[in-house]
């Protein structure tokens, strides 16, 4: 059951288990980190450039850069954990039938694991620099930010 406390001391008192308290703390810590990571990401993808100009080359350049691989992977991990735990709170509140709740969780958690796996593969296990010519890389090295 989600903790409804407004203060850490209350949260500790309300948490049924240490794990539930750990999730309560995680939501706040990851949320604070994600504010900067995600707003930075949106700024780079929508304000610094025209989001309508994003194409394969932009992705390949960006995912050829180690800094952005790390940035994106931290963002991917934290946002999926934060989002899926948030969804767990919502399902516990809104899906009253225990069987339906159980299966909804099975399906959504599986989907999240799949998305995490595919996203991690593209960030860590695929060489996007292969398709880029040396010229393209030099030409756009500033643009990848």
């Amino acid at each position: 059951m989600a903790i409804r406390a407004r203060r850490y001391s209350q949260a500790r008192a309300q948490a049924g288990t240490n794990l539930e308290l750990a999730w309560w703390v995680f939501m706040r810590v990851s949320g604070l980190v994600l504010v900067f990571l995600v707003l930075g990401h949106l700024y780079m993808a929508n304000i610094l450039i025209n989001a309508g100009d994003v194409d394969y080359n932009y992705i390949a350049r960006r995912l050829s850069n180690t800094t952005w691989k790390i940035y994106d992977w931290v963002m991917l991990s934290l946002s999926l954990l934060h989002g899926m735990n948030g969804l767990r709170y919502v399902l516990d509140d809104w899906v009253r039938d225990a069987r339906a709740r159980f299966w909804t969780k099975i399906v959504t958690y599986s989907l999240a694991v799949l998305v995490f796996f595919v996203g991690s593969m593209s960030l860590l296990n695929h060489d996007f620099s292969k398709g880029l010519s040396e010229n393209t890389r030099l030409e756009h090295s500033e643009g990848t930010r």
């Binding site: 992705i59 390949a60 996203g119 593969m121 593209s122 695929h126």
Partner: peptide
């Protein structure tokens, strides 16, 4: 979004 961007693989 993640699946869509990852499709670049």
């Amino acid at each position: 979004h993640v699946l869509n961007i990852s499709a670049a693989m």
